[in-house]
Write a protein that binds this DNA or RNA. Structure first.
Lengths: 144, 144
DNA sequence: GGTTGACTTAAAGTACACTTTAAGTTGTAA
DNA sequence: TTACAACTTAAAGTGTACTTTAAGTCAACC
């Protein structure tokens, strides 16, 4: 009977696995977001499960959470299941903010698209007269 | 017969009209993004058309364009119609980057939603056993 | 056994987009 | 006319999230 040793990643390999740099991992660790294990010689090592954790952190970060919000989340997580309501409230708040931003950027994209189309129409009929961008927008009901 | 004087905004009023602060408007002006008019006493004033311009800049900014990209855009705009191809190429590049980011944040949102649901299910059946988040994600095909 | 690359730490530096300060001038309302 | 708010400038400061540097230890390969 054999025991499978859990795979160990040195910081450089782990960094590649999660798409970060070694200094960024040390920075996150200092911020309390990650707690790698250590070899006897003092070097960090990470395990497969740590990959999921970091990737999850990066998803939260990608929804707009700041490092300090992540720190709060991690602190509540460490405090145990009685902080689930707080964590849930935080994530819901993050989601609400996200959705507001999401609607805004969709509108920004619409204007960007309209401007691209306006330039393309302008380029297509290079010698003709053209309406300006504001009235062009109004034809589509795309205000501001 | 009367001539309607175009409406003039002092910097504070204009700031309110576009949702920025007066210092930010001065900052944008220093960056070359805005060129307000001046009264004889040296004070800036803005007109209605400037509102559209600033709002358009903010839309571009909202799609991810940096100040320096906006500067490039504005420089090409000032150079006249022969730079339309460059402007178009810039905006299309911005759009491509935007769409990549857009897909990424949608995935981040999905994971955030999954986590919220996972917590809510965990809260609902507080005394029961629960699967961990990774396997929960896999049930929906929401990887990483 | 020596060289190269990866690791360790703490601290300083960077990039971006503003924001604030300081010192002074001007316009408006009581 | 006095006081207060809004304007002017240049320069310094802020917040966020890293990134880079410096000085040293350690491990792996030829």
């Amino acid at each position: 009977m054999t025991t499978t040793t859990p795979e160990r990643y040195a910081i450089g390999d782990f960094a590649k696995a999660v798409g970060l740099t070694a200094p960024t991992l040390r920075y996150y660790e200092k911020a309390g977001l990650i707690e790698p294990h250590r070899l006897e010689n003092g070097r960090r090592y990470y395990e497969a499960a740590d990959i999921n954790w970091v990737k999850f952190l990066l998803h939260l970060k990608g929804t707009g959470m700041s490092i300090s919000e992540l720190q709060q989340y991690v602190a509540w997580r460490a405090a145990g299941d009685e902080t689930i309501p707080q964590r849930l409230a935080l994530l819901k708040h993050v989601k609400e903010d996200f959705l507001v931003q999401f609607n805004e950027v969709q509108h920004h994209l619409q204007i960007l698209n309209d401007k691209i189309n306006w330039y393309e129409e302008k380029e297509a009929g290079i010698t003709q007269d053209h309406e300006d961008f504001s009235s062009y927008l109004q034809r589509f009901g795309h205000h501001e």
